[in-house]
Design a protein around this nucleic acid. Sequence first.
RNA 1: GGAGAAAUGCCAGAGUGGUUGAAUGGGACGGUCUCGAAAACCGUUUGGCGCAAGUGUCACCAGGGUUCGAAUCCCUGUUUCUCCGCCA
Length: 424
Amino acid sequence: MLTLQVLRDETNTVLEGLKKRNFKEAEDLIQQVLENDKLRRETQNTLDSLKARSNADSKKIGELMKAGKGDEANALRAAITQDKDKVKSLEESLTGFEKKQLDILYRLPNVPASIVPAGKSAEDNITVHEHGKVPALYAGALPHWELIKKYDIIDFDLGIKIAGAGFPVYKGKGAKLQRALINFFLNEADKAGYTEIQPPIVVNEASGYGTGQLPDKEGQMYFVNEDGLYMIPTAEVPITNLYRDVIVNEDSLPIKNVGYTPCFRREAGSWGAHVRGLNRLHQFDKVEIVQISKPEVSYRILDEMSLHVQGLLEKLELPYRKLLLCAGDMGFNSAITYDMEVFSAAQQRWLEVSSVSNFETFQANRLKLRCKNKEGKMELLHTLNGSALALPRIVAAILENNQTEKGIKIPAVLVPYTGFEWID
RNA sequence: GGAGAAAUGCCAGAGUGGUUGAAUGGGACGGUCUCGAAAACCGUUUGGCGCAAGUGUCACCAGGGUUCGAAUCCCUGUUUCUCCGCCA
């Protein structure tokens, strides 16, 4: 959520930024929030002075009572009672202004960073880096949804039987490959200085608000009605919310955490073309890196995180490209996002396997995640995160790109983790 | 799941209706002393909102209520602890 301060002080910058996103209500909402803010402040002013008066009077009553002047106290008491209604109605309208302010702020997306290109859709994204060669496959090459049947490593039908569509069952070498990838990703993050976290995979409502999944995207998350808990769509939610309402010690920055969790997404309405096999699931595994930093270094950290993700793809010998998302294709919370896409040779498609984003203060403002700077002032921090990496599409690409007539060759870096070189 | 107790500042811990944003102790930070350190002594140590400043206002788990006035009384919720039950 944008800060009121920014909306007040840099109204035009915000407006331009939101237009770049193609966010049509920008002008209207900003005007509303500024007007509302003015009314809110005026109301608080009157309310505060009214309260100041009655606080002073109440104190006086106390003193009169002590002094045994009951009559005078009673007279004053009667006078104060008159103010009570006024206070009450002012308080009500103040609450109204505050509520409206929050309602509007929740609807305003983040302002894109200056280097983010304008644009409406994925077509306007910019490829900033490419790496690796698309492998030439042999004549009988298969897409991964055929390969998993051929080698009996992932079973969708069994998943349907015990849960539903989009909940695959990994078997034998398929399960081991999953485990190997998770361990490989966690070890690489560990080497890069991230602290491993195992968070709960359900979160409460406050956490959903903290990272921006709520109030808008409840339809995307599985909800446990009985207990008011949401199944996490990504480890970003619990791991970032660890720092909700926290004032971080400046010396401990940047904070670098990594977590492996299953992720749950309802994906309501997004089924259709291109969602076969592992391309889109309701439950999948992901290793997520999360950093919290001082504002002045967050863009350096964004690069560091991207390079970490790129390094993983390179070690896995997967051809990939790095996209700078255009403003219109970026998530609601993000100021800048790089997507990493891997080429899956049998499908002849680029698959998104990672999104690395800087949210600047957008999440921190909701989370009340701050630190006290050298001047002793409170300052919102920047939050960043990135998938490092999401498993299913990586698995799909490995299976498709590494298939040969005699089986699927496991990338060399993974062999110490899998304990086998071939799926055959 | 049942019964009881509790929730106060960075920590410990007072306070049960009237200058209590909050005693006291500890910790941390700054200073004096010292070649340096320890000890001792002095000082500083919560945040939100509003205003040009000094102030004002709000906050003692959360949300309601009683009262001229609530950390203190009442209601609801949450969490923690103890006992019983159940159980990976």
